[in-house]
Nucleic acid binder design. Structure first.
Lengths: 361, 361
DNA sequence: GCCTTCCAGGCAAGAGCCCTACCTAGAATT
DNA sequence: AATTCTAGGTAGGGCTCTTGCCTGGAAGGC
């Protein structure tokens, strides 16, 4: 809330910001088009282009306005240069690692995949992560945004194990691992949080992830709430109604119903999907208890159900939710193709653009 | 995220904002002190004072720098005028209504109280509210901020009844009632939310209110999360552990233990405080179930316990919380004297200042 | 009692940024 | 070949801020 210092430099940096944002939106523009697009006068736009060219952020593409357009003088197209750099978006999941390099236009300019054995040992995960990063680090990224399929400590970016909750990837410190390959900040967050950020929805909704692990992201006023350590939404030990009506933790319901993978804390998805209507009803009731808590505490407009077995059991969950004292609409997640990576990619783009703008000041 | 238009007018309004904020902080300053305080040059500061004087926001107080200070020329003290106006902060609770008028310095310049009968009928509450507002409306306030001891619909500002939850004040539309007395926006929120905003604490904590009603405010990244309709934190029907270990709604625990007021949905506070250790243990366990849900969903650094019977039962609650899978520190609320009004007052001040600054633009 | 010191406030000059208005160059059309 | 039309450049002016200097008046020192 502290107001910026009033100075002419502020005005100039604002002009440059407008020009850069216009180029990010439209990829290439002449100086006259820039002036029309930003509402800035032609001389000022031209001067800004000159400054940005000098800084190496913008360059004449060599292209000229095509003759067909108008009959006047040909204009020179300007565009962002390679000097604006790229950002890394990385997804770490039990299935494997996917890393992408995104430029300031939002284009994915490179992509590296590393499948993982199941279950993978932490050192294998670390090796796959650094290998993927190395493959993309030809142009050193200015920052990285990482999605991980486990609880993430907000302060350190490390993956952490919570009591009794599935731990799918294991001990890992993505910040330390990526630092050699990234020339800037590394942001890490839970995959459910990223998927929620990517999901189109209202400003206040909850994203319930039901897969091998259980997770939940709460979007409030358009932002994902992370909590103190970043563990908000770790609902595995939320109290709910068990098969025998007693109060049990959500994850224990799957133990009682025999739906956990052998020698693991993870849920056996195939068995959940194949089970009897009675069991599905029990699962639905248990999930509805979690939804009741989400509704009471965060008052979402909508609960989005994602994950591998959530949408298939949507009807069972909805039937149980109908008995709750406060109604809330449910919906299956619309984004099904790499939702967490999509969220991380969008944030990487946002941060990259902010870094480019900020470097102007 | 849209950057402001780059213009010299922007710079000028920023200068005026700096001057106004300096005067809000220090009450009265000479032009030379203003320049030193804001970091702006003397001629610019003097020019800004001239503009603001012309707008009627600032005036020469007539005071001169006291001889004792320095030996140079005497300076003229400038201060905000009555033209900056006042804001109203109002608390609506079962005990009564308190309204305060706050000026841009944060001083309470007037206060009106109207006690209420228990239980009060909604029309009596409305009459008391308008009477209190009328008493303070000598200088028409520029805005009002209202705290109400019932769930508040975020969109309309109306008090609303939730199924099975205590409804202490009843149907009321503070926005409509105050509109004749206030020349600007009227903001309404739940008393627990206001108390949480006033409570000194970390950026991520939960405020659990345990009194006649049950409430909870979640502060995430320093802001109270309200949810879609403003009903986030209405925890009365959160699932928890009942006296017989079955899963029941939190408010029903008090029914099962015979701790609700006759013919009312409210909790009988005196009986809670006077009851046996066994009952206190049951209450503590039920509350710990709610805390478990709060921890799982919002990951607070700390849970602050407020309300009339919360702090006295802190030990019983803490004992039950110690058995939870995830630990969280508890603390009694530090602000005990009109905490909700304090929060509303702080917000009224904040909004009044923003209105004064914004009017400059 | 007079002189020096010190500071609030005002004035002048200058630099930076943006805008309007006009000019110029060069390609397409007539 | 003349005209039309548009991108880009130039000139001048207005606005805001800053630095540097001057002025007036009160307190303190001799």
């Amino acid at each position: 809330m502290v107001a910026a210092k009033p100075s002419l430099e502020l005005v100039r940096s604002l002009t440059d910001e407008h020009v850069l944002r216009a180029l990010m939106r439209h990829r290439r523009l002449t100086r006259a088009e820039l002036a029309a697009e930003t509402g800035i006068s032609k001389p000022t736009a031209g001067e800004s282009v000159r400054r940005l060219t000098e800084r190496g952020l913008v360059a004449d593409t060599g292209e000229r306005t095509p003759g067909g357009r108008g009959r006047g003088r040909v204009g020179s197209y300007y565009a962002l240069t390679a000097g604006t750099g790229v950002a890394l978006a990385v997804s770490i999941a039990p299935e494997g690692i996917v890393a992408e390099a995104v430029d300031a236009y939002g284009d994915t300019v490179a992509r590296a995949c590393r499948p993982l054995d199941r279950p993978a040992r932490p050192d294998q995960v670390a090796a796959a992560l650094t290998a993927a990063a190395a493959e993309l680090a030809t142009a050193t990224p200015r920052l990285a945004v990482v999605s991980a399929a486990d609880p993430v400590d907000r302060a350190t970016g490390r993956l952490i194990q919570l009591p009794d909750a599935p731990f799918l990837i294991g001990e890992l410190d993505p910040v330390a691992l990526l630092r050699p390959y990234v020339d800037g900040p590394v942001t890490v967050d839970n995959d459910v949080n990223w998927a929620a950020r990517a999901e189109p929805g209202p400003t206040d909704f909850a994203y319930l992830y039901l897969g091998e692990g259980l997770g939940c992201a709460v979007v409030s006023d358009g932002e994902v709430k992370q909590g103190r350590t970043g563990l908000a939404g770790e609902i595995a030990h939320l109290l709910t109604v068990g098969p025998d009506n007693s109060a049990v933790r959500l994850i224990e319901v799957f133990g009682q119903l025999g739906l956990r993978q052998p020698d693991s804390t993870a849920i056996d998805v195939d068995r959940v999907l194949a089970d009897s209507p009675t069991v599905r009803r029990s699962v639905g009731r248990a999930v509805s208890g979690a939804i009741a808590a989400i509704v009471a505490l965060t008052d979402p407009e909508l609960v989005v159900i994602g994950g591998s077995w959530g949408p298939p059991l949507l009807d069972d969950i909805a039937a149980a939710v109908a008995d709750l004292p406060r109604r809330v609409p449910l919906r299956a997640a619309t984004l099904t193709d790499e939702p967490a990576l999509a969220g991380a990619r969008a944030d990487a783009l946002h941060r990259l653009r902010a870094a480019i703008i900020g470097a102007t000041t």
